[in-house]
């Protein structure tokens, strides 16, 4: 019931980015992250930012939604920035107290790393915002399929991921119900762990585990009844096929890489 945006939430739409093959999207978003890492200076990072903004425009996702979807992880950005401020030293010293020393290089470095991390998060969220979780699992499974020959259980991993995703919202709601039921019986979950807190935690976790086992038992019967016998001989409702959009996506990311490399060379030349 909660409408709070979480990282990885899908933003339904029908943009060219939404329609791309999830496998290509998955690989491309990895590629974009690598490109962001390759960017050496502010110029390169600026180019990355420009391209990522372009991708969001193509995906028709409002920037506010994108920001909201990574909001829970922004503390990571802040944390990294703080660590850099504190641990990178050099240049003019702005502020010093006890062992804390804020220097010019530290601030620059912190700003740069924060921007880079921010762009990385944005590019990762573009994948999850435009791809339904199910498509992500499917892409994951298919990308791993070639490794099945060396014994990697690609199908089983995909199936597990799919079932986990299917039960996640259910467990969330069951957890809420159990929580409320035990609170009704006077349980406190914030109190001293040595004074009834552990028992309260058990009162929350054990019902959740028993419910998981109960679900698992019926689910396995139900899957048996529907003739599930592993990945061999299984067909797929959705057949993934590469199209012009995917080619365009690859071209766009290639262009981004070229731009960033050019910026790097340019920056190196000037310096």
């Amino acid at each position: 019931m909660s409408e709070v945006a979480v990282f990885g939430q899908y933003w339904a739409g029908d943009s060219p980015v939404h329609r791309m093959d999830p496998r290509v999207k998955m690989l491309l978003s990895l590629a974009v992250m690598v490109v962001v890492f390759c960017a050496q200076g502010w110029l390169g990072l600026g180019a990355c930012a420009a391209f990522i903004v372009g991708f969001f425009l193509a995906a028709q996702i409002p920037i506010s939604q994108a920001l909201r979807s990574i909001a829970p992880l922004l503390f990571l950005v802040v944390l990294t920035a703080l660590l850099n401020v504190l641990f990178v030293q050099g240049g003019e010293v702005y502020f010093q107290w006890w062992i804390i020393c804020v220097s010019e290089e530290g601030v620059t470095r912190a700003a740069f790393v924060a921007c880079r991390l921010f762009l990385l998060l944005m590019s990762a969220s573009l994948l999850t915002l435009t791809t339904a979780t199910l498509d992500i699992t499917e892409a994951f499974e298919r990308l791993l399929a070639p490794f099945a020959r060396i014994g990697l259980p690609a199908h089983e991993l995909g199936m597990m991921m799919g079932i986990a995703l299917r039960f996640l919202p259910q467990f969330t709601s069951e957890l809420r119900t159990v929580y409320r039921a035990q609170v009704s019986r006077g349980a406190t979950f914030t109190a001293n762990p040595f004074k009834g807190g552990v028992r309260s935690l058990l009162a929350l976790m054990i019902p959740l585990f028993t419910s998981a086992f109960r679900h698992a038992e019926t689910l396995s019967s139900a899957m048996d009844a529907r003739c599930y016998h592993g990945g061999v001989g299984r067909t797929r409702l959705r057949e993934l096929s590469l199209g012009r959009l995917d080619a365009a996506g690859v071209a766009a990311v290639a262009l981004m890489l070229a731009a960033v490399l050019a910026c790097n060379v340019l920056a190196a030349g000037i310096l």
């Binding site: 299917r166 679900h215 139900a222």
Partner: peptide, 25 residues
Amino acid sequence: PDDQLVASLVENDVAFGPENLGIEN
């Protein structure tokens, strides 16, 4: 019903059985 739905999307769940039977598109 909550214990026997395999997939998150309706169409994928309905397709689960025939997929196991190897029915092609």
